[in-house]
Design a protein around this nucleic acid. Structure first.
Lengths: 220, 220
DNA sequence: ACTTGTTTAAAACAGCCGTTTAAAACAAGT
DNA sequence: ACTTGTTTTAAACGGCTGTTTTAAACAAGT
């Protein structure tokens, strides 16, 4: 048993390297031998510390979530002193920066994005733990930006419109890099790209609100 | 469909089945044995008719493109008798239907989407052959919808906003199916979802046009 | 020093992979 | 009927995979 008191260095190295390798190659193409080589441990260590390659993957995912949330806190999304527009823009900027973070610690979101694209058995856990809460924040903000009487499906479609614009820079990064490399060339360009997505969406929200005939606008 | 004695030559069956299997499992997880079993041919046939698994993949991709364009023609995008708004909506609706086509012949786009997500050496060919022309259509329409003097980067970002909203229903389908299944439950729902994306984007385009050349900073 | 429990190490296992081999089956021309 | 070239087949070859085995190294308590 690996007690929660003081995890062994080998255990930690294994977990951290696993996130990197799984993110880089995907679950299937990642080999335990590659993970163990990078972590400077014996091949049998995966079976020893974790039960199997599958179990290591699940643990690596959980570890990635905690690290991603630690590196990209989102408390400002709940800051009611900011306007809904400001909180929405903050969400988008934070999300894009997360997705395009290629630093040594940025493999976490790569791993999550990969799990979204080709789900393993671990996706259900990920949904409940990491994605549903995110969508909850986004839904609350969007509902404030739209008319209160707007139907659920419209809210859901708007959430996916925002989600999709952002995730494209991860899932279709190969295309962005080849066709529009200047859009993500440096942090300044990334910031501007995120700002565009926020503006683009806020424009649409404003029109969805204005064209909703169910109730007169009570706010603004 | 595929019996012991099928009129189609082994080469054709192999190619068609390869598209299915590569789309379903991806290049790495797809095995030539699985392909040959489904095609009712011997394992050695892949080496015989195609040089290798890699060469078969490239040929399958090229085959998929031709079929996808044949099944989803886009000549209406060039119909100048339609308004730019109509042509844009037509593009989005066509794109979404393509992406969500799960019929027996709908594996082509699955394969293309997969190649976008995790590129192989075949991506450059795909870009020039299938993706750049599509983006060309989209760019022409969007330029008509925006102010003529809008800068290139804004046009590119708008293209990616549209592209991303659509592709989400393919790349993040696992999430859509779990969290918002009713949005893609049937052809009517899919049509409405596509219409939302078109409206969402057209709203934004109108605002981008109205507020040109200097975009207001909605943050702060 | 001996025991106990934990961690590392080298080696091997069984299974699947892409690919090749070599021979058999076949079709068509002469 | 025989030759020629093409297609199909069963079997095998290395190579890589996740996992297990077995034993050695280690730390700590007694």
């Amino acid at each position: 048993m690996t007690g929660p008191n003081t995890p062994e260095p080998a255990f930690d190295r294994l977990l951290q390297v696993a996130v990197e390798v799984f993110a880089e190659f995907g679950f299937r193409d990642a080999t335990v031998r590659e993970i163990c080589t990078r972590a400077n441990v014996n091949v049998a260590s995966v079976s020893y510390y974790f039960r199997s390659k599958d179990a290591l993957y699940v643990q690596a995912l959980n570890f990635a979530f905690k690290e991603a949330n630690r590196r990209y806190p989102q408390e400002h999304l709940l800051d009611q002193s900011l306007s809904p527009e400001q909180r929405f823009t903050g969400f988008v900027v934070n999300f894009i920066k997360k997705l395009l973070d290629d630093s040594n610690l940025g493999f976490f979101n790569k791993l999550i994005a990969r799990e979204i694209y080709e789900p393993t058995k671990a996706l259900d856990d990920i949904l409940a733990t990491a994605i549903v809460p995110q969508f909850g924040y986004l839904e609350a903000i969007i509902r404030q930006l739209l008319s209160p009487q707007v139907d659920n499906q419209t809210v859901q479609r708007c959430m996916l419109s925002v989600f999709g614009q952002c995730l494209t820079f991860k899932h279709s990064r190969s295309i962005v890099e080849r066709l529009f490399p200047e859009l993500i060339a440096d942090p300044i360009a990334i910031q501007a790209t995120a700002q565009h997505i926020a503006d683009f969406s806020l424009y649409a929200f404003a029109q969805f609100k204005a064209s909703n005939p169910t109730l007169p606008d009570l706010q603004q």
